[in-house]
Nucleic acid binder design. Structure first.
Length: 1015
RNA sequence: GCUCAAGUGGCGGAAUUGGUAGACGCGCUGGAUUCAAAAUCCAGUUUCUUCGGAAGUGUGGGUUCGAUUCCCACCUUGAGUACCA
């Protein structure tokens, strides 16, 4: 009988489905264990071999825990709302609901054939109205809550209203908008309803406000900070600009401190915690208020170094700071306006790419030092960011390098306030060594004492206080897209009103055009049935809006992370129609015991989900305030791409109609090698910024191209750095600016086995390169260069798991993915290696089944049999518990090799061995288990018990080393005394050879381990 | 720039309370089987070597009887973050 994996895998997948083998029940005598994967976006491309890596690991763990006697919850679902699904729908010109359903079908088929032990009865889809009903419901809870700093938790908004009615807002210690105006109880009562609502919005945990947002014209939507990478959108790599828009936001900043503290009690990787800490960005210091003489305005700054306040020689405001226009003197107006305008023009990416150029302008205004009362010139400069702190800094050039550079550049005095420190070359920023001088009451104090003292003095004069600042900003929650959760919100007199929870879900309306617009009009604006009838409590036609009780509905939709911020709770009670999950279910499953997913969600999903969980906890809706006890980031499986190189003069980037400077990370290109570092612009677009000159001259460009071509012809392309270094001189001599060797991804179907590219086929495939000049090898062939990178359809390096499963089977795929290397590590995929695990499975099969059927019998196991089994149990158990799945696959291979060599047929050995391997290769294990005569699933068997006694040895093959180097081994009894071991070793012939007549200086004997002779 | 992680054969990787470096697998070489191929099985495979051995875990130092493992400095790669006051 042969190992017929196709038949076996299908049979057992059918069995599991028909018998609902992995259905988890809420409540059991067994202890609970919740194993969760980050649910996938069902993208149109389907799964590639990288996707199941984490699922396989979690599945092994879930199956292991079942064998250990736990009641295991191991669910799966789809994060089916959001940009990726919608972008795919737009590309293919279909409705997102249709493509999403199709994609989910593909995903499900692909997942099923890998043999996961998911409980599909609990499947969730974030785009399902029965699911997003509760996303909307949670949104309403957030709207109806505020953050009370005194109780340090979210409370009902009605409590806040009571406080306002009783004593105004002066005694309220809440997290709220910075620009809140104080009012009394009388004031509150006298306010119009609209004004009251406006004030409440400044306190609510989700609120509508005009904020500066990251607007992405190409995607037609705003993006959250974590959705932007290197100044361009994470999805598609489109430019992002700053824009003021009225948007829903989440007051996540209220939870900054608790999100930070909570990290200490969860078992997540240090790297991930570090990146969340970084994102929260706590810094402790003081806020200081600087008065502007003869003006109502004050400048408030945040500083971590209040101790250096006597070193302030100027102040700097961000160019966008609201005071700039007010305080600028008429003489400086032209300068300041020009600078503000120039800064506004620069894209985020430009600003990021060019942090070295110092620029700024003097406003002509002066502030007053809080202690010395000296006038302090007020400058503006783009090194101060509008979005951090107050958008203004007190500049202490002697203590901060950026202030120092700015002062040097604009010839502003640099007073020294540090004793015994030379600041003629650079600023002195070492807090630990600081001794303050020239600073009145701070003289002679160190950093700690001076900080304490100065805060005391500032508070005394009412011009400052100790303050903790967080980098974490409130999260923008509106998207101008179609494929997302609609807000349960309608507007009366421009003020948002929540729809009563009883009427949820508010279903996504049908629209004719669901494409986003570049101007920011949300697609829901095209819906004709999208108004709220308050009396009937239903969505009605827009034409009725003039009626007394019919109001417009919110046109924005929620971002992709809305649905993923609480889905782990829904799995606990996925079909509940009355609650997002019953308290009974929530109290039983509590939290995720093991969460596996990618590290790319560190500052997005994983932070937002923690935030919502803490909020739900505050509202007594969930029993724990951290949703996942342990989290593992699986590494990415990389694909091998093939490149061919083409010579190209640099093309201007016109994604948003703007001219950009150096393409630091232009994602529109696959990869760019810069030969020279200037820029060719069109003749009518000549700019000059700082040191980088932009000019245009086609003749020079042509000459350069010629030079490069001639230099490169016949050269072997080895690595891009050498290349650029080698030719950079030529380029500069030509006075020319830029040229690229551009690598193009190649479909491997044009590449033969010796890596030669069929250039004609390639050119037909990518017609735009019909006339391009490709770089050849010395022998004139077009060879591709291989490089390992992220697997992606656009890189033509995708390996489809379907092919692997059909050629080698799911068990081979599962074993191989684990065998590839440590789970957390990034590693390249190489299909060739799978034959190793596949032939292992065949050997495993042969161990149980011979030509004439099963050859397992009741033979008494030998000592060796028992030893092999028990050392395997020990190692595999240790490995699973430390998530070292790659080494347990090796252990299985060793065990099968040994048992085969031992000709083991004993059921007593082979049965427990099958249980051991069943989490990894469940299909073959079930099949053999069944053939051994069992009727139920192997997943209900108990995990074998390790017994030390089978591993006890009587002798040890001692390594004998000389000066630490092992030279030979000696078999000696383990109960031999140190002295006898020494004697036996010294008497050995090879010892004499090694010593060559010298006397051993010292002999180290570690019984049971090693002997080392120092000679 | 800062933070973190990692550097071991042709390749993926194994080995840490410091104790036989290269497990396991791929690839490669030779052999058996076969008309042949696939499949399977056996042997070998870090480098150098005068075949006795010797060197060897990014580089240079240190601690130790003994270091891939601990300490210091540096180099390289990857990831994250970036004028955060």
């Amino acid at each position: 009988m042969k190992y017929d994996f196709r038949r076996i895998e299908k049979d057992w997948q059918d069995y599991w489905r028909d018998h609902k083998t992995f259905k988890a029940v809420n409540g059991s005598d067994k202890p609970k264990y919740y194993v969760l994967d980050m649910f996938p976006y069902p993208s149109g491309a389907g799964l590639h071999v990288g996707h199941p890596l984490g699922y396989i690991a979690s599945d092994i763990y879930a199956r292991y825990k079942r064998l250990q006697g736990f009641n295991v919850l191991h669910p799966q679902g789809y994060d089916s709302f959001g940009l990726p699904a919608e972008q795919y729908a737009i590309q293919t010109g279909q409705h997102p609901a249709i493509t999403t359903a199709e994609n989910i079908k593909t995903y499900r088929r692909q997942l099923d054939q890998i043999g996961f032990s998911f409980d599909w009865s609990r499947e969730v889809r974030t785009s399902d109205p029965n699911y997003y009903k509760w996303t909307q419901w949670i949104f309403i809870q957030l709207f109806n809550s505020w953050y009370n700093n005194d109780s340090d938790k979210a409370e009902d908004i009605s409590e806040l209203i009571k406080l306002f009615e009783a004593e105004g807002n002066s005694t309220v210690n809440a997290v709220c908008d910075d620009n809140i105006e104080p009012f009394s109880a009388e004031d509150w009562k006298s306010f119009s309803s609209k004004k009251q609502q406006q004030i409440l919005l400044q306190y609510r945990l989700t609120y509508l406000a005009e904020t500066e947002v990251n607007w992405c014209p190409a995607l037609g939507t705003v993006l959250a900070n974590d959705e932007i990478v290197n100044g361009v959108s994470e999805r598609g790599g489109h430019p992002v600009i700053r824009k003021k828009m009225t948007q829903w936001s989440m007051r996540i900043s209220a939870y900054a401190e608790r999100l930070l503290q909570g990290l200490d009690k969860i078992d997540w990787t240090d790297a991930l915690k570090e990146s969340q800490r970084n994102w929260i960005g706590k810094s402790v210091g003081a806020s200081v208020e600087f008065k502007i003489p003869n003006s109502e305005s004050k400048i408030s700054v945040f500083t971590t170094r209040p101790d250096t306040i006597f070193g302030v020689s100027f102040m700097t405001l961000a160019p966008e700071h609201e005071l700039v226009s007010q305080i600028t003197t008429p003489e400086q107006k032209a300068d300041v306006d020009a600078y503000v305008e120039a800064t506004a023009k620069r894209s985020e990416r430009d600003r990021m790419a060019d942090v070295k150029t110092i620029s700024g302008a003097f406003t002509g205004a002066y502030a007053e030092h809080p202690f010395t009362k000296e006038p302090i010139p007020i400058w503006i400069g783009d090194y101060v960011l509008a979005g951090y702190g107050t958008g203004a800094v007190m500049s202490v050039p002697c203590g901060d390098q950026r202030d120092y550079d700015f002062a040097k550049h604009f010839k502003i005095p640099i007073p020294n306030i540090f004793d015994g420190v030379d600041i003629s070359e650079e600023a002195f920023a070492d807090k630990e060594k600081t001794v303050i001088g020239n600073s009145d009451f701070l003289n002679g104090l160190n950093y700690k004492k001076a900080t304490k003292r100065v805060i005391y003095e500032l508070e005394k004069i009412g011009q400052g206080e100790g303050k903790t600042n967080y980098r974490l900003r409130d999260a923008v929650f509106s998207r101008q897209r179609y494929w997302g959760e609609p807000f349960p919100v309608y507007y009366v007199n421009g003020m948002p009103q929540m729809i009563d929870a009883a009427h949820l879900p508010i279903k996504l309306p049908e629209v004719e055009k669901y494409l986003p617009t570049e101007t920011g009009e949300p697609p829901l604006g095209n819906a004709t049935v999208w108004a709220w009838d308050r009396l009937k409590a239903e969505v009605v036609s827009n034409s009725l809006i003039d009626n007394e009780n019919v109001f417009p509905l919110e046109l924005n939709t929620m971002p992709g992370w809305a649905g993923s911020s609480w889905y782990f709770n829904r799995y606990m009670d996925a079909s509940n129609e009355n609650e997002f999950a019953s308290q009974e279910a929530l109290n039983y499953w509590k939290d995720v015991d093991l969460y596996i997913g990618g590290s790319e969600h560190a500052t997005g999903h994983l932070l937002y989900a923690r935030f919502w969980q803490k909020f739900l906890f505050d509202k007594n809706l969930v029993p724990v305030d951290e949703f996942a006890k342990k989290l593992i980031n699986q590494g990415m499986i990389l694909g091998t791409s093939a490149f061919v190189y083409v010579l190209e003069p640099f093309m201007t980037y016109k994604g948003d109609g703007m001219i950009n400077s150096i393409p630091v990370s232009l994602p529109i290109y696959d990869k760019i090698y810069i030969i020279s570092f200037n820029y060719i612009a069109n003749a009518d677009e000549i700019h000059e910024y700082g040191d980088s000159r932009f000019f245009h001259n086609t003749k020079i460009q042509d000459k350069l191209t010629q030079t490069i071509r001639e230099s490169l012809r016949g050269k072997v392309l080895k690595d891009e750095f050498d290349m650029s270094q080698k030719y950079v001189d030529d380029i500069e001599n030509c006075n020319v600016t830029a040229l690229y060797i551009r690598p193009l991804h190649t479909d491997v179907s044009f590449v033969n086995s010796s890596d030669e590219l069929d250039i004609e086929a390639f050119k037909n495939w990518r017609e735009e390169y019909k006339d391009a000049e490709f770089i050849t090898e010395e022998d004139g062939t077009f060879k591709v260069k291989r490089d390992v990178e992220k697997m992606s359809k656009s890189k033509y390096n995708v390996v489809n798991p379907d092919d692997i499963v059909s050629d080698y089977g799911a068990d081979s795929l599962r074993l191989y993915e684990m065998f590839l290397g440590p789970l957390e590590q990034y590693k390249p995929w190489n299909t060739a290696g799978i034959t190793g695990v596949h032939s292992f499975l065949k050997k495993l099969w042969k161990l149980y089944v011979g030509e004439n059927g099963l050859h397992v019998n009741d033979a008494e196991p030998t000592k060796d049999n028992l030893k092999t089994l028990h050392k395997t149990i020990k190692k595999v158990q240790e490995d699973i518990e430390s998530f070292s799945f790659n080494t347990s696959v090796s252990t299985f291979m060793i065990a099968v090799n040994e048992l085969t060599a031992q000709k083991c047929t004993s059921k007593e050995i082979l049965e427990p061995f099958l249980i051991l391997i069943s989490p990894y290769a469940p299909h073959i294990a079930e099949e053999l288990w069944h053939q051994l005569g069992h009727t139920g699933s192997i997943s209900t068997a108990p995990f074998p018990k390790f017994e030390e006694k089978h591993l006890v040895e009587s002798s040890k093959n001692y390594p004998i080393s000389f000066n630490g180097k092992m030279r030979f081994t000696m078999e000696l009894p383990l109960d031999m005394s140190k002295e006898d071991i020494e004697k036996a070793v010294l008497a050995h012939e090879k010892t004499k050879d090694q010593l060559q007549g010298r006397e051993p200086k010292k002999v180290i004997v570690v019984p049971g381990k090693i002997v080392n002779i120092v000679g």
